[in-house]
Amino acid sequence: MKIGDKVQFLSDIGGGRIAGFQGKDIALVEDEDGFQIPTPISDLVVMSSSDDYSISKSIQKKSGAEEPTAADPDTFNMSVKAKINQMDEDVLEDEDEYDAADREITYKAKVEERKGGNVLNVYCAFVPEDVQNFSKTSFACYLVNDSNYYVHYLYMSVEGGSYKLRGEGELEPNMKMYVESFALEDLNEIDRVRFQLLSFKRDKEFVAKPVCDVQFRIDKVKFYKLHTFQKNDFFETPALLYPVVKNDGVAQLKPVDAEKLIYVDEEKDEKKLENKGGEAMKNAMEKLKNSSLNTSASHRNNRANGDDILVVDLHADELLETTVGMGSADILNYQLDYFRRTLEENKHNKGKRIVFIHGKGEGVLRHAIVNELRYRYKNYRYQDASFQEYGYGATQVMIR
């Protein structure tokens, strides 16, 4: 403290400026009436320094600014303790005026899981927006998550060799989400669509589902026929539903390569076989259906000596006489059907071990086989076969 400092009493009302000192512990405080009050320095608090005061005065004078208004007379002559109490009262008044209803809602209820919802089912739904005027209506596209999983999705349309992102987001369990609307004249833009899906659960353990990359063609003719829009469990109005993933999707998802999975509806396999190259595939599939694999005979030379291990080579040149007219998807579907038939014929041979040689390559066939074993044949044990005997491109399955 020094002469000229503006001070206020701690234990009494009022204050003033320091006019001088009496010894080391007593300050002479001059009030507004000119009286000097001897006060212990420990009972004073400096409100503003004389240096700050003079500097601010000189700045105000040079800049032409107005002097600050005088302090509130109701509070200037109050002690510091009284001012603190006054501030607390003001805070309490502000709290009384606060309405709890204005508070932001941060609570989020936990997701309630339904029985049977741990099997992944996702649908793409098209709903007419004006059923009464069907010939001119536009259509709303929804994604429906009929499972207990969160599903992060990308929704794209295929345009030649490239893609256009039409929607992305996160589907909550057992919920549906609006994606877009379009008119009949825009149908050509969604002639072929592609979905990429990643499913998971929050705040709890769960069984992992495969990452799905699904592509299929939209039948535009159906949008001109009212009867193709059926009653369903998800919408109050009729809707056209396309299953994107059904019962975990493995039975319907047929991988073509590591970055492309094509949705194949089993009921429509015969129609797809009529495409280019389909005749060769149809003949091969017909031959496979009408004949027993007779695995015990056809692979007897591949058994290990003294060990009941069945070795099945799934390479196309081992299974097919010719692949002329067959595309990569056709060959892969044939290999998977042969794999399923082999397991079906040996399902009663408990403890039997079967080694499927699929080759290393890009891992497409192996990926498809592992998906089948995880979800369609989940009771069977499987592992990589001995690389010393079969190399790195073989999987051993044990029938249970």
Rank of each mutant, 00 (worst) to 15 (best):
K115E: 10
D233N: 13
A183L: 14
A70I: 13
L273E: 02
L184G: 05
M87V: 09
Q36V: 06
S157G: 06
D130I: 10
S181Y: 10
E180R: 07
F182R: 09
K246E: 10
V370L: 11
G117R: 01
T395P: 01
A239M: 00
F339K: 09
K57M: 15
E95V: 10
T323I: 02
L332W: 00
T342E: 03
Q388M: 13
V45E: 05
D269W: 01
E345N: 05
F200S: 10
S292E: 11
L187V: 04
T106N: 10
N305Q: 15
F139N: 04
D146G: 03
N283Q: 12
V250K: 00
G249M: 01
P68Q: 06
Q22M: 14
D257P: 01
A109D: 03
T228P: 12
K347F: 15
K282F: 02
A329P: 05
H299N: 15
T75I: 05
L288A: 03
N275D: 12
M47A: 08
Y178W: 05
T342H: 01
N247L: 02
M326F: 01
D313A: 00
K176Y: 05
D186P: 04
F21Y: 06
V256Y: 06
Y149C: 12
R192G: 12
Q396G: 04
G23R: 00
